[in-house]
Design a protein around this nucleic acid. Structure first.
Length: 311
DNA sequence: CTCCAGGGATGAT
DNA sequence: ATCATCCATGGA
């Protein structure tokens, strides 16, 4: 038989066999990976490849089952289930959302979206790089950081790069980091990496602190303000009440919850969201965010004129 | 081409 | 205490 034939057989064996199945009810993999909380997963034939920490993973969804590539790691099913937070009781969480038109529309639209558990440094570093960047840009920055400074992993015939450790980034220069399209964010990432690498701030230990204390400690880091801190709390510290307010969410809040209101500064908005959205506010926020960002095409009135006017 | 993006730090009122 | 400005970059 020809070499090509052998190769095809080998490939078919890899892609059809050796997939571990884990139950995943109330879960939508593609929606979750496209919801702007994680930025490095890449779509490949039928599924996605990416890294969970240091481990390369292939994962695809078949109804209420996740099929994952069983690599060397015995604990991979447990790692995947933990990463995608399959233990969150999503039905209860969604039922706890406020009952209002915007929230109901988002809840219906985002069915199966879960707030995942990300590695702390990776999440912190990525969101430091996220300021004034569109999701597509953040994906590109994440990819460049991984390509230049991360480590190579292999899953099937795909190459996956891990996110570089704080030590790894700490020993680069600001100029090197700027080559990853970071702009002014390079210095913030570099200084934060050096603070974390030095042990001056222990990201794991912050997990034992209260919400306000975690937020305060994170905000001491350069490039970390209220919004980034809340993203890290929500996506890496499992503080499900953390409610990040970015330009999208602020627009939604003003349009849907405070139509023609004056005197709405960031502090008042933040106070409202904590009280109104409650213990699972972070989930509610993520649903509102993804719904708005995904259905942005329908901007009304003047925008159509603008769109038609430009070529 | 212009617009704007999962903001934060700084200096001016 | 609140508000305005600047900061770099590239996809849409």
């Amino acid at each position: 038989m020809s070499i090509l034939g052998d190769r095809i057989l080998a490939q078919r064996k890899i892609s059809c066999v050796q997939l571990t199945r884990i139950p995943a009810t109330d879960f939508d993999l593609a929606t979750t990976l496209d919801s702007g909380q994680v930025f490095h997963w890449e779509k490949v034939d039928g599924g996605f490849v990416g890294a969970i920490g240091e481990q390369a993973v292939y994962v695809e969804q078949d109804g209420e089952v996740l099929k994952i590539r069983d690599g060397e790691a015995r604990a991979l099913p447990r790692i995947v289930a933990n990463y995608f937070a399959l233990d969150h009781s999503l039905a209860e969480i969604c039922a706890s959302f406020p009952n209002d038109p915007a929230m109901n529309a988002a809840r219906k639209f985002c069915r199966g979206l879960r707030v995942i558990r990300q590695p702390k440094w990776e999440c912190l570093a990525t969101f430091i790089c996220s300021s004034m960047k569109q999701v597509a840009h953040i994906r590109q920055i994440s990819r460049k950081l991984r390509e230049r400074f991360g480590e190579t992993r292999q899953i099937d015939n795909h190459v996956v790069r891990t996110f570089p450790s704080p030590q790894r980034i700490a020993q680069r220069s600001e100029k090197e980091l700027r080559k990853c399209a970071l702009g002014y964010r390079a210095k913030n990432l570099l200084v934060t990496a050096r603070v974390v690498a030095s042990g001056d701030v222990d990201l794991e230990k912050l997990g034992t602190l209260s919400n306000v204390d975690v937020c305060a400690r994170l905000c001491e880091l350069p490039g970390v303000g209220a919004k980034v801190a809340n993203c890290v709390m929500l996506f890496a510290y499992e503080r499900l009440s953390a409610f990040p307010i970015d330009v999208w969410i602020e627009r939604i809040l003003r349009e849907k919850y405070f139509p023609r209101a004056r005197k709405l500064n960031a502090k008042r908005l933040q106070a409202f969201t904590q009280k109104y959205f409650g213990d699972h506010g972070g989930y509610a926020q993520q649903y509102l965010f993804h719904h708005a960002r995904t259905t942005k095409r329908k901007r009304k009135g003047r925008s159509f004129v603008t769109i038609l006017g430009v070529r």
